[in-house]
Design a protein around this nucleic acid. Structure first.
Lengths: 127, 127
DNA sequence: CAGTATCCGCAGAGATACTG
DNA sequence: CAGTATCTCTGCGGATACTG
């Protein structure tokens, strides 16, 4: 029984939580939007466009909890809260961009494959 | 209004579906398990350990549809179905391993941050 | 062995309304 | 402005049973 795992040494349960966060569509979006610098809550909401404030709050809390984002409250009226990437959060930008690059590079292949797959299905049914 | 996006040129809607697939915990696991070569259905199920056959089937169908995995039926009794990575699927291993590496490298930081975050919460409540 | 079909529970996410 | 609090509904995913 050969156990030659190609995957990175280190238990899967270390990796899983991170993957889950990446999979969270809002989380990644927020991280990318914060790449250029701090952004305020409602500004963030506006840029994302469709997100509910509930989900944005949850997403930011999760990112803050994981140490990827810092929340800074400026004591003023009206209140001003800015969110920014921590160094850890910034370091995540790199692997994310690798992945994004892959996605962009192969988007056409994937789409074609899907079309082919769905096409076969339709033909089977038709016969 | 400066629009200096750091993220990869190419619309987000191209990237989102891929991120969703990565976020699918089963999908990534399966891809990694297929890294060393073709594996049969039940063998895959056994290695994953906890997955329901329903989810495994769905996951494999999705991966097949996206062209990341090929399904090969060997006409025999009992039936034998093998799943293997396509070249496209193999190419995904690279960005995944980058991400995994990041996860492993920063797992401790993240965990510490979580503990600190949760600790503050508990203290606030206690006071 | 390798699935498909069906039922069901519960967490995730939206909509809405209210507050410091 | 930046949230919290509820209420609700959808759909992911597990358990189970059946089939080629």
């Amino acid at each position: 029984m050969t156990v030659r795992h190609t995957h990175v040494a280190g238990r899967c349960d270390r990796v899983a939580p991170v993957l889950a966060r990446i999979g969270d569509k809002w989380a990644v979006l927020v991280v990318v939007l914060l790449a250029d610098g701090p952004v305020r809550f409602n500004e963030l909401k506006r840029r994302i466009g469709v997100i509910s404030q509930r989900m944005l709050t949850f997403t930011l809390r999760a990112l803050e909890r994981d140490g990827l984002v810092v929340r800074t409250v400026h004591a003023s009226v009206p209140p001003k809260v800015e969110y920014a990437l921590t160094p850890l959060g910034q370091s995540l930008l790199e692997p994310i961009s690798h992945l994004s690059q892959w996605a962009v590079d192969h988007a056409d292949e994937i789409e074609a494959s899907r079309a082919a797959f769905d096409g076969e299905d339709a033909r089977e049914v038709a016969e």
